[in-house]
Design a protein around this nucleic acid. Structure first.
Lengths: 224, 224, 224, 224
DNA sequence: AATGAATGAGAATTCATTCAT
DNA sequence: GATGAATGAATTCTCATTCAT
């Protein structure tokens, strides 16, 4: 710690995880504008001034939160969609998609990720940079990866034609919607949607179609 | 002196509306916390203090904005979902659903409604009351209406079994997602999704299924 | 409104008593600085702007309160001290003084007068004009009148030598103190001093002396 | 880093005192409502915001001023009234009382104490808590102590019967009245009463009686 | 590296005063 | 004469950022 060296280089890496963790909590709870550095410092167990040793600005701190905590979570989900050219996940889309949604449901169950998402939505207009970070590092890659996988499936004749990007919205929209719903109405709706359930049911509905074949009005079949 | 001059009344009732308009603009642009009453007043063409003749507090003004914009929007959308027992909309679900989504896409294209939605999402944690209003007056009724229509379709054997509420998420989630996307990434993504397109394509995908029949050009198999 | 005339002259006299009454109440309750013209207007049953038809300024309104309400009360008390050269009140000081104090106790029992006094004390430094009005129209005349009467009594050999002005403080100080005490500790002390009792007992104590003649340790005599 | 450097502590404890000093000045000069935090800060040589490091609110600062100035003043005066059972002050009441008044006159000559008193009187209605503090910690104990001493003198046959509490008003009222007079009419009356003079003359007048024995034109008796 | 006291620009809110009706 | 909506200067309080220690 005392000898000179390239150790300094590491400082950026060494950014106290506690600060970022604390910042995530506070941002998630109050939103960006209403988050107080005082709170963050207290929760991180450091002095307010210490935050400035590592982050030039409140916004920089937010950026770090996204980069250090959100990005990894995104990568994890992407790993399920970004199906490598070869490998076991490269099965039929009808099998990959449900797995993807299930994985996403799991990732989104961490309230922290969802809370940041809610925050970004609220502050996007005020801090365009936040929106850009979120778009470039989270939403964009995710959408593109999913759309790419869908395009591949279309090329393979597995998936119906149409804008792959729009198909991606079709695939992930309901799950994200449910996530937001849980976030926003946490204290209001005592019976919020279950993410895993939404993921599973929606995967089936979307893939197979919501409409049942117009069964010649036969007797009711026990639903399968 | 005694006659109730409606001269005043009219202005007295017009002013707040102009203030709410201005407030909507500013809130939508900056979010609640970052919105400055100075801006709102200037945009409304009144003095800062005049706002306080009609709204006790910044929060009260925010609430007024939400309620003022909500009311008509809800009526409009509910009219489309609250499919009357009889009437033309009471056709087969496969025809009703696309119309519903198309109508919603239209309603959501008004940036004002979408902007308020984004605001509420962003400030839900800070103003729980607001979340409750939004839930009880907007999202709840809407979801319930859609779910009820779906349940009816299920009873008629038109729609695959499963939680009607979750089916509702499947149906409207992508459209709402796209709406939010447009709001949040307005300045970031030069090529945002087109709501009408999403509505149309998603309706077809969801209803008919994203997966093409495993085309050894066989005949349609009863799903799964 | 259009014809010139002497009618205007009357306006000052016609100053609505309700406004002054209301102002007294509000000033007494909140002090000068914290008194709101809105309150005064509401209590007077007029519009806020109407106050300005009669009083140029908040301070002018206060001045009117003093002149219209306080001054008469003072005159009443003065009438008891300003003993005319002849007349029944011109008896021995030992008889006049108790009557004077008793009359003052009665006058001060009106909380309104006392409340304004409290207010002036609080705001004197902020609004020197108020202090001047109060001094010139209330306290000064009162003190001078009492001191003059005392001086006369001294000349007659009735009263012990010493500064008549200081004697005046000796005479009225306890009663005023008790009045203030009641005002300030209205909500705090459940058993405030009774003004009439203070007046009576103090008159006797001061006039006859608090100290009993060092009775050669004889048996207790029924006092006085 | 771990040693508790008292370096900071000292400054941290000194600052609030300076602020309270400054606040006393400004409050005394303008009263509570009209005092500007800006002024106080400037006079204390700190930034406006710094006040809020130590006092949550303008009212809290006011309270601190009162308590800070009260505490020593009360101790000092109580020491004079709380005549110990034994000791030199336990002489005849006729000797103790003048000493008591003289001491009080000295204490009240400090404008700071008097200024705070004036403030409390002025703001009592606005801040009932303040009135309570003042009553419970200052006026109550003082009055009780004086009344108790008087009661003792009555028991010893030194003092005329009557409510000891009212006698206390008789004793200290003129001095307090004079103190207030000086405060309130500081800028108005060029010749305010001298506290020591009032104390001395009133002590004699009250103890011996204001009325001279109906001198059958005898030779001047040494008064007493 | 760390601290936390200090700063001061900035925002919400109040209210005496004005003025069109 | 009366009204009360409108004004905007003034004030309290907040909080990101700085800096001496």
């Amino acid at each position: 710690m005392n000898e000179a060296g390239p150790r300094w280089r590491r400082r950026k890496e060494a950014r106290p995880a506690e600060m970022i963790e604390a910042a995530l909590d506070v941002f998630a709870e109050h939103g960006f504008a209403a988050a107080k550095l005082d709170d963050i410092a207290r929760r991180a167990g450091v002095a307010k001034g210490s935050l400035y040793l590592y982050f030039d600005t409140k916004e920089a701190l937010f950026r770090a939160v996204v980069e250090q905590i959100i990005a990894p979570a995104v990568s994890r989900v992407l790993a399920m969609a970004q199906i490598p050219e070869e490998g076991p996940q490269n099965g039929p889309f009808a099998e990959v998609a449900p797995r993807l949604l299930a994985g996403a449901a799991l990732a989104l169950s961490q309230d922290r990720v969802a809370a940041v998402a809610r925050m970004v939505i609220g502050e996007a207009r005020t801090f365009p940079d936040l929106a850009r970070v979120w778009h470039d590092q989270v939403v964009g890659p995710l959408l593109s990866a999913v759309a790419a996988r869908i395009a591949r499936a279309q090329a393979a004749g597995e998936v119906r034609p149409g804008s792959p990007r729009t198909h991606a919205f079709s695939l992930v929209g309901p799950l994200l919607m449910a996530t937001l719903y849980r976030q926003v109405f946490a204290g209001v709706d005592a019976d919020p949607p279950d993410l895993a359930q939404v993921a599973a049911q929606h995967a089936q509905s979307l893939l197979q179609g919501l409409i049942l074949p117009a069964t010649p009005p036969a007797k009711e079949l026990p639903d399968d």
